[in-house]
Design a protein around this nucleic acid. Structure first.
Lengths: 123, 123, 123, 123
DNA sequence: GTGGTCTAGACCACG
DNA sequence: GTGGTCTAGACCACT
């Protein structure tokens, strides 16, 4: 029951979906530091995807220090998860700020936004 | 002194940049309802872009009811700008909600978000 | 208070709009046989349209025997209105038949159609 | 023995013909949900048409949620065919109503219309 | 002049 | 291989 999943109907490239997929599993703790992740071939056949696509995703994940690979032994979840989380949170807040600025220009009321925030944090 | 501008180095397609460009000018009132917008060929030569690319952008803008075009007469800003603004604001708020949910999962504090909101609205 | 009208936002060419416009006025009796219709120049200035466009419409209306023009004296409504009506009705029924066939293939029920017909004729 | 076909002599643009063509095949079940449709290049060479023209048709079909495409994988029939059918039927009935109203004004008898309906549904 | 369609051919990223 | 973007240049109908 692995939660690996790709949506072929999405416009988002499959390799990007995989990146997001695995990144999320790591950040949520579904995959713990030093856990092994499926081999390229295994995941490829499991998802019915070209192995090259899996490889591309793994390469990018390694570049982002979310996993590490050792030749012949497979790939594992990195143990500096907190750094990754920190980085993503910073990006996330920057995006939110941009969107809020846009929404304000479009006429959004401060109250509406506060309500959204309250709903998410307090409910 | 038209504010049309495209960044050829961007990964975002030129025609999408044009769409965003014009949409923003309409939403901010730089272009008023029923104002004429530059002809396909004129804007093409002005920006050093192929007319087909401009046409693609105009066609999509027309589909989104932001402009209307008629053969032999040219293209004009639509007059139901409020509908477009309303629609965009709804989308924007949905995106914000999604990002906030993600940020919360990543460990963002409610206070941080509230501060961002206050900064934007009250400063 | 002439009912001549063109919608610049429509995809339908202006000259076609004029043709439909005048044809309808003739068929509904708003314009009676041998009534004069506005001169090309007059209608052009009234509607803010290029005279060539008006001329094109008038030429087609003449070809369809809906109006007749005599050089230097202007244009007038034809007096064989019934022929025109007959012809249009035949076309109209053919179109309806085609659309009904399509609707049936799409799953329309006979009852729905009968209801539409009843509403139009009996209400 | 694909039923793709275009009439080069028609005034209807080739890309629109393709759209109608494929839409009909989907609605009639000739193309089933998630079936692959020919690649842009393949259909182009098959029909002797420029790939750009095929692409334009596919792009519009995707916008209408009749197919979906993904780079590197190809294009496939969407699986929410019923929504499309529903939408098209609604449009179709609206058109029929308009035409019936016109026909009535032109002097059509209710009986004539009823006969047409009966012929189509009962024969 | 205007927008709209089409062709020919190039280049890119994705799988 | 696939779809997607862009250019260059032609032709059409409409105004």
């Amino acid at each position: 029951m692995s939660s690996f999943y790709v949506d072929f109907k999405s416009r988002k490239p499959i390799y990007e979906q995989l990146i997001d997929n695995i990144t999320n599993m790591v950040l949520r703790g579904v995959l713990a530091p030093n856990d092994p992740i499926p081999s390229v071939r295994q995941l490829a056949s499991e998802l019915g995807i070209n192995p090259n696509t899996i490889h591309k995703a793994y390469a990018e994940l390694e570049r982002r220090c979310i996993i590490y690979s050792s030749t012949g032994r497979g790939s594992y979840v990195s143990d500096n998860v907190m750094d990754v989380r920190e980085k993503k949170l910073t990006e996330s807040k920057a995006q939110i700020k941009d969107l809020l600025r846009e929404a304000k220009e479009l006429g959004a009321e401060k109250g509406e936004i506060i309500n959204i925030v309250n709903d998410l944090w307090d409910l």
